[in-house]
Design a protein around this nucleic acid. Structure first.
Lengths: 155, 155
DNA sequence: CTGCCTGCAAACTCTTTGCACGAAT
DNA sequence: ATTCGTGCAAAGAGTTTGCAGGCAG
């Protein structure tokens, strides 16, 4: 999904829900969708302020649900009392996360058959799958061997 | 794993790490291992106080890492800024969680081939798997059909 | 003009920590 | 006796919310 298409998608989502298209919300969108790595709410505040310095922490937190709700951002919870976000450029793909326990870097890998579980669930428990998460925490081989974690790049 | 075996395992873990076997720690162990459903740290405080009312919140939080570290308890993070715990009666099984988004009940289902991902990770990224999580959020069919979520039981 | 949106700061939830007392070895 | 463990309360991190003024529609 291109940035322009995503921006339209977000704008449409806002309008459709009777929400206004404000400068702050669009600055937050631009800041978020411009990222290539996972980021936190606090990171996003800094990015958005670089575009529009009137953006406040509260507005970032109030806008994030609209960004995820419109499918423009994906929320990634890796069990650290801290949520991460990522532009949802390819919304159809089933992905899993691999988290390096040494450098905290998050990798995304494809997880093609994850939906098999959804089907199992629906038949066995009388539930309809909504979302699925598959995550692997792993330690860095190169760190153990050479003392340097070669995955460490962004953070 | 029987309760007695688990209690020994916990005691051994404490001793092996130069930690003392105190009344409070054992009360917390008994309270935790006696549960059949998922519980939070706050729940555990209440359960433990029913056994030994001198147990404090701080001690519960300080003891939980030892309970999970010894393999007696499993920590389950379902992305709610709140950690859940469960007695680890069958530590060898790979399990996934199914969380009902309507009643918040957590089901555990077996996930036999989850380790396949671990192998994929190690070869592709130069990482060694430490832990894996697979979770499915799902909505309740009976709630939608009859207005009552028949899964709602404990919490 | 109207009412949603905003920034600010305080409140909130869950968890961690400093301190002096108390108990296990 | 030592040393670690404990309860208490305050601090901490991340997030949410009440309020008075501001801007989109």
């Amino acid at each position: 999904m291109s940035t322009d298409a995503a921006r339209d998608k977000f704008r449409t989502h806002l309008s459709a829900h009777g929400l206004r298209v404000t400068n702050q919300r669009m600055a937050i969108f631009d800041a978020a969708f411009g990222q290539t790595e996972h980021f936190t709410a606090e990171d996003l505040l800094a990015y958005a302020r670089a575009i529009d310095d009137s953006v406040s922490r509260a507005t970032v937190y109030r806008t994030l649900p609209h960004l995820t709700g419109s499918g423009v951002l994906r929320e990634v919870d890796i069990g650290k009392n801290l949520k991460y976000y990522l532009p949802n450029r390819d919304s159809s793909a089933q992905v899993a996360q691999v988290i390096c326990v040494d450098c905290d870097k998050i990798f995304e890998i494809s997880a093609p058959f994850m939906s098999w579980y959804g089907n199992t669930v629906s038949t066995k428990l009388g539930l309809t799958p909504v979302t699925q998460r598959l995550q692997v925490s792993a330690s860095c081989d190169s760190l153990k061997a050479t003392g340097v974690c070669k995955h460490r790049a962004s953070a």
